[in-house]
């Protein structure tokens, strides 16, 4: 294949790959959003409570951080139907991904909550705020800002992690690439195109998150980056 032919081929498969990218982006966004909604209460419970509320939250986090995402995906997709829950592929993928992301996000948020000084909570209580009011208006806004750098990493990881759902044939970016390869046997150019798309998307995400971080920066609320080990 000449260079021109290769470029021609890459250009031709692009529309199909972009359809896959759309699914990847949808899954990423929904997993992050679902994960976030679950992560905040989990982090809250893990930080401030002991006993019967704390242990299920802790078990959840340890379970999802301690097992491979692929295993989690299989359990949801193949395991749940055996218990009588038949889910379609996209829904299974989303459930596994958002639960996994919730576990990680809750840890970032928990760390951030802990770095908000206890004294501020004390001051809020002394002003007559109830604990949840104090958490909502004093601790949470700071914790979310402090968690932003790790959260940015989570976004970038998620874009790439979504590719594991190839294993249950959800038509996201990587799956489309695989389909093209089976059809055309052009492994190199296809994977190269797929990789290129990933790089551009992750780069764009990083830029956007940098902007968000700058936008929400407050003097005295400096942040350190902590993300999951890839």
């Amino acid at each position: 294949m000449t260079l021109t032919e290769t470029l021609r081929f890459m250009w031709d498969i692009l529309p199909e790959l972009l359809q896959g990218l759309e699914v990847t982006i949808q899954l990423t966004a929904m997993s992050l959003a679902g994960g976030f909604v679950l992560a905040v209460p989990v982090a809250l419970v893990r930080t401030y409570t002991r006993g019967p509320l704390n242990w299920p939250a802790t078990a959840f986090v340890e379970l999802f951080r301690g097992t491979p995402l692929l295993v989690q995906l299989y359990v949801v997709y193949y395991g749940l139907p055996e218990l009588g829950f038949v889910l379609d592929r996209l829904l299974s993928a989303w459930i596994a991904l958002f639960l996994n992301s919730a576990a990680y996000q809750s840890e970032y948020i928990r760390g951030a909550i802990q770095s908000v000084s206890r004294g501020q909570l004390l001051a809020a209580r002394a002003l007559g705020m109830r604990s949840l009011t104090a958490f909502r208006w004093v601790v949470l806004p700071q914790a979310l800002r402090l968690a932003l750098p790790s959260w940015s990493n989570e976004v970038a990881y998620m874009v790439k992690y979504v590719s594991v759902v190839y294993m249950i044939a959800v038509g996201e970016l990587f799956t489309r690439g695989q389909l093209i390869i089976t059809r055309t046997w052009k492994v190199g150019p296809t994977l190269f195109t797929v990789a290129l798309i990933y790089i551009l998307v992750v780069y764009a995400v990083t830029k956007v998150m940098d902007h968000v971080e700058r936008r929400f920066r407050i003097p005295g609320l400096e942040t350190g980056v902590e993300g999951r080990e890839a």
Binding site: V116, S117, G119, Q120, L122, V138, Q142, R145
Partner: peptide, 16 residues
């Protein structure tokens, strides 16, 4: 507590 103001050694202002 609304009727009892408190001032702390470490100020404890809300950073954000």
């Amino acid at each position: 507590r609304e009727k009892i103001g408190m001032v702390f050694q470490e100020f404890n202002l809300f950073t954000h």
